[in-house]
Amino acid sequence: MKEIVVVSGKGGTGKTSVAASLVVLAKRSVVADCDVDAADLHLVLEPRIKKTEDFTGGKSASIVPGRCSNCGKCYEICRFNAVIKDESKQPAYFIDHIACEGCGVCSCFCPEKAIDFKPSVNGRWFISDTRYGPMVHARLGIAQENSGKLVSLVRNQARMLAEKDNLSYIIVDGPPGIGCPVISSITGADAVLIVAEPTVSGAHDLERVAELAGHFKIPAFLCVNKYDLNPEVAENIEEKARAGGIAVIGRIRYDRTVTEAQIKGLPVVAFPDTAVAEDMRTVWENLEKKLNLNKQ
């Protein structure tokens, strides 16, 4: 079984469109949407939800009004400015749940033991069926933290499904950036497919995400999306990638079919006669070839 994570560094380069097409092309696969705070994959894969579970990512503090003596200890020791002081209220202190990091320090040192520190529900996750195989996806609660943990959970569930059904591939739609949820999405994976766009921003962000993949020693592959918007920059990006030991496995052209497919709620390759679908097939064929070479 191979786990492939589609990433980009920069947002909006076409990760989800590429991932959705790979899901169709990979056939025996399970798909995981790890962009848990702005998930879009469900819009083109039409999942039918079979199982919904709460996600408890961390603990959160809250002051129990009856027990608080207004001593201000929590306000003094919280380093995240999550204890708010409002002397017009009783008690004068309350927790800003958005700012709370869940460290539990306030609760531990409250002389009145007036601060509860309990697991909090930070979101939900789903196991679904799609036309192309099982899917694991999630929704982080509004303004919630712990996206890295939710990503881990989604990947872990996807792995368990793949093992159970003996599927050949896990396709992961990753989040943008290079921070916590991206690190959670790629560590331990078999390959990352970087989708870049031919802009100076795209080139800049590619370098950072490629370095990240290198940092965690994960084989990386590149495809430039909408390459014809600026072929010169596209070439430049490909050159840089090759110099950094990243295999270039194809180019995808700019095509309005991509947006039309999105509006119809379908993966691009569901329009097999279009040029952009052909590009996607080339990307997948090359990727599959390279992955199986690495295996031997």
């Binding site: 702005a38 958005i98 700012a99 982080l140 303004a143 996206s147 989040p175 943008p176 950036g177």
Partner: peptide, 14 residues
Amino acid sequence: APPGTSCPVITAIK
């Protein structure tokens, strides 16, 4: 701001 709806963007816009 960074993209998304979780900690980084909340820190940036608060």
